[in-house]
Amino acid sequence: MYVLRCVIPIEDNAELRLQGIQNLVRLEARNANLEGKGAITIRDLIKSALRMRPNRIIVGEIRSEEAIDMLQALNTGHSGSLSTGHANSPEDMLSRIETMVLMGMEVPLSAIQRQIASGIDLIVHVGRLRDKSRKVLEITEVIGYQQERILLQPLFCYEEKGEREGRIEGEWKKVHDLVFQDKLLAAGCDTEGDPEAGG
């Protein structure tokens, strides 16, 4: 069984309620004071977190150039870390990450795309439907980088079946199998779905 030694959630305002983790270090950003000093940004906190040798870093939401530091964390042995962001689709989220990185660093777009393809494994797209409900609409795997674009493959999609009493009804459809199962196995997960095996 894989044991998490250290998990570090990083947020603007502490909202996550994580339980059952022995070594949990919460970091919270701080605005500047009236003199314009003393600010602690998400970027500062990600850099500090990397010095603590965590198993997982959880960034509440990326909105700006902190995307650079999150990508670097994902590409330096902190796989399994996660963050959230706002976009209309998995493809749009990748475009937003590219834009956010460019806000803080001048690097070729291809270099950013390679970092994204190497660091991000899965994108879970949550959307609001017309009945105002929120649902997981798609789970997509990032499978590589070819011909100057990031390759995505949907694993599961939510398919609407109609409406009942003003509520949208639907079901999950499996579209493809996970390509990179080796990462799950390395993390102690059983790809056959046996909850007793793995962590």
Rank of each mutant, 00 (worst) to 15 (best):
I46A: 05
G144V: 07
G20M: 12
R63E: 10
L178V: 15
L18N: 06
S83M: 06
R26S: 13
G20E: 12
E65G: 00
Y158M: 14
Y145K: 15
N31Q: 11
L34C: 01
E148M: 13
R167A: 14
Q115K: 11
Q72N: 10
R149G: 04
I97T: 07
L129T: 08
L185Y: 11
I8C: 03
I139M: 10
E66V: 05
Q181E: 14
R51I: 01
Q113H: 06
T76A: 00
S83G: 06
R128H: 07
T140K: 00
E171A: 03
G170C: 05
D190E: 03
D182Q: 15
G199L: 12
R128Y: 10
G193I: 09
E98W: 00
L50I: 04
D92T: 09
E165F: 11
A73K: 04
G77N: 04
L185Q: 15
C6R: 14
D190H: 05
M100L: 03
H176T: 10
P154I: 06
Q146W: 04
G162K: 01
A67L: 07
E106I: 06
I62S: 01
V179P: 00
I150D: 02
G162L: 04
A39C: 07
E171F: 10
K47A: 11
V126P: 01
L137Q: 09
G60V: 06
R26L: 05
G38K: 00
Q146M: 07
R26W: 07
N88R: 02
L34F: 01
T191W: 06
I42S: 04
K183C: 04
N88L: 02
S48H: 09
L184T: 05
E196W: 11
V7K: 02
S89F: 10
N88M: 01
I8Q: 01
G38R: 01
L102K: 12
S83P: 01
E106S: 12
P9A: 03
I116P: 00
P90M: 00
S79L: 11
D69P: 06
E28R: 13
R167V: 13
L137N: 03
G85E: 02
Q146T: 13
G85W: 02
Q115L: 09
P195F: 11
Y2E: 05
I112L: 01
L82P: 00
G77H: 02
V7R: 02
L50G: 05
M103A: 13
S79N: 08
M52F: 07
G119M: 11
D12W: 06
V25T: 08
M1T: 14
C157K: 15
L74I: 04
K47G: 02
Q153A: 14
G38M: 11
R128C: 02
E138D: 04
L151F: 00
V126C: 08
I112R: 08
E66Y: 10
R51T: 12
E65V: 10
L152M: 13
V175A: 05
